[in-house]
Amino acid sequence: MKKISTFFYTIGQGIRNLTRNKWYTLASIATIAACLFLFGLFYIVVMNFQNMVHAAEEGVSVTVFFKEGTTEEQILAVQSMVEQRSEVRQVDYISADQAWEDFRNDYLGEYADGFTENPLVDSANLQIYLSDVAMQPNLVTYLESISEVRDVNRSEVTATTLSGVNRLVAYISVAIIVVLFAVSIFLISNTVTIGISVRQEEITIMKYIGATDYFVRAPFVIECILIGLIGSSIPLIVIYFVYGRLTEFIGSKFTILSNLLRFLPISVIFEKLVPASLIIGVGIGFIGSFVTVRRHLRV
């Protein structure tokens, strides 16, 4: 019973401490919010950029043409074999008729009326889309080894460039996120340390009166957890409301780039950003206060 009332008392004190030290509370929340806002902003940019590169990769395909006399059944057998491969995302079969139809629609229009027969009779092909463009050379080698295959069309430069860009973005983003993460941890823990150090006197008085370590520490820890929670929630709320409008605005201003500017929905961004921000804010509040108060408990 006593322990329950002490538990609620320490929670109450933790909450009350927020208003007792208004300026410290505001400064800490502002620091955490600013750090995590920057962190979130960069995370969004990186995620969207990677998404756009990935979208470009998805459009890269390998086209396989078959030797004269290859039947549709043989082509479909090759299709099902190719579909089994891990680097392959999708395989579309384009029949000779379909190929002529597409070509006519795309390039000839009314001039196609002069053709009475399908000039692309040997153009039945397989359009192969990769899950990872970096694997294109492996796939091409495999395709060329199939006896029915006449020719394999691929864009080596596009695949190499895209996979290179993707790798570069991944390295840079990991490096910047790590730096921002470290800076956030440093700034937030410093704020917590300063806030607790100025109240060393209060801790000393508590210890002289006979307070246990738990009794001294708990209100500070609760206070810092709350500061971390509020500080990390603010940028998330701001991002939640601003992101949709900003992407809409960019989309409307740069319609010419609409195929390239494919923004991720906020729900996908938040899948990792929310837990990461809360862990940084609340986690540092908890660990920072726990460690800092311990330094002052040896009275």
Partner: peptide
């Protein structure tokens, strides 16, 4: 751990 109890 026993110092608080003593100080009381």
């Amino acid at each position: 751990g026993k110092i608080p109890k003593f100080r009381r």
